[in-house]
């Protein structure tokens, strides 16, 4: 496997004519479909994917993490076609933070965070013992996300927000170059929302980590994303800076409701609010 970790200078992702549809079943209501998506995603940036419910945001994220395979079209990760990579090869470069984590078994937070080291070890089914290096990386990630003190608690016992932070710590433990997040702040209170957003930006600046996040929180996306991508019915409506995307006319056509856009008093970036 060609390791392009340090030599590749192109975009993180290049998508060409990517089409995806879920098999339609009577009980499956989610029919979000992506149609002929072509775009490239710059490395070292924070990209926010926006769009109404069912516009294909989460599906796109799953395609990028190679959880789903496109029906047609190709996805390249740092110049390598995703379809030719092993799952572990992808997992060493790309980490995904899912929208919610369900766990019915009593793993501890530290055990769950350490699972992020799985793709870095080869062997029968990944059978290995975590060494000091694994520990160091996991510990650093837990420090960053402020979950070290929860290390011995059970995943089933902590609050939703604490679990979400632990899951992000697990993703960082994968030492990815690309971090995908599906609604990372949905279950968090204001304090931890801000924390997560700041951590993501810091990681992005310090380690030039590429961050791709799906969010319904337009204001958070506006403040922290370098670029925004607006999806609607499985098509890309527009890609651009927050100022380009968060325009009242564009949002009204996509979301189907009236919005007010003014400027954030501190940053001057667009701020979206709903009319009374």
């Amino acid at each position: 496997m060609v390791d392009s970790k340090n030599v590749f200078s192109g975009p993180a992702y290049a998508l060409r004519d990517v089409t995806f549809g879920y098999a339609t079943r009577a009980y499956d209501q989610s029919e979000s479909v992506l149609k002929d998506l072509t775009c490239s995603i710059d490395s070292g940036k924070i990209l926010g994917i926006l769009g109404p419910n069912g516009s294909g945001k989460s599906t796109l994220l799953k395609l990028l993490a190679r959880i789903l395979r496109p029906e047609r079209g190709t996805i390249e990760l740092f110049g390598n076609p995703l379809s030719l990579l092993f799952q572990a090869d992808v997992a060493r470069r790309v980490a995904l933070v899912p929208q919610e984590t369900m766990q019915v078994f009593p793993f501890t937070i530290a055990e769950m965070v350490l699972m992020g080291r799985f793709p870095h070890h080869r062997g029968w089914g990944g059978w290995h013992w975590e060494d000091a290096e694994d520990w160091r990386i996991a510990h650093k990630a837990m420090e960053d996300l402020d979950v070290t003190h929860l290390g011995s608690r059970l995943v089933t016992d902590v609050s939703g927000g604490e679990r979400q932070r632990a899951v992000i710590a697990r993703a960082l433990t994968q030492e990815p170059q690309v971090l995908l997040l599906d609604e990372p702040t949905a279950f968090l209170d204001l304090h931890h929302q801000l924390d997560i957003a700041r951590i993501l930006r810091r990681l992005n600046r310090e380690r030039s980590l590429t961050v791709i996040l799906v969010s319904h929180d337009l204001n958070l996306a506006s403040q922290y994303c370098d670029q925004l991508m607006l999806l609607h019915h499985g098509h890309i409506v527009e890609v651009g800076s927050p100022q380009d995307i968060l325009r009242p006319d564009l949002l009204e056509t996509v979301y189907g409701c009236q919005v007010l856009v003014d400027r954030h008093p501190q940053s001057g970036l667009p701020r979206v609010s709903l009319p009374v």
């Binding site: 190679r66 055990e111 799985f118």
Partner: peptide, 19 residues
């Protein structure tokens, strides 16, 4: 070890590198 990751759900397990 793969079973450990599978308890997180199939999609998450896949995103962590499990075939």
């Amino acid at each position: 070890q793969s079973l450990n990751l599978l308890t997180l759900g199939e999609e998450t397990a896949r995103s962590l590198g499990v075939e």
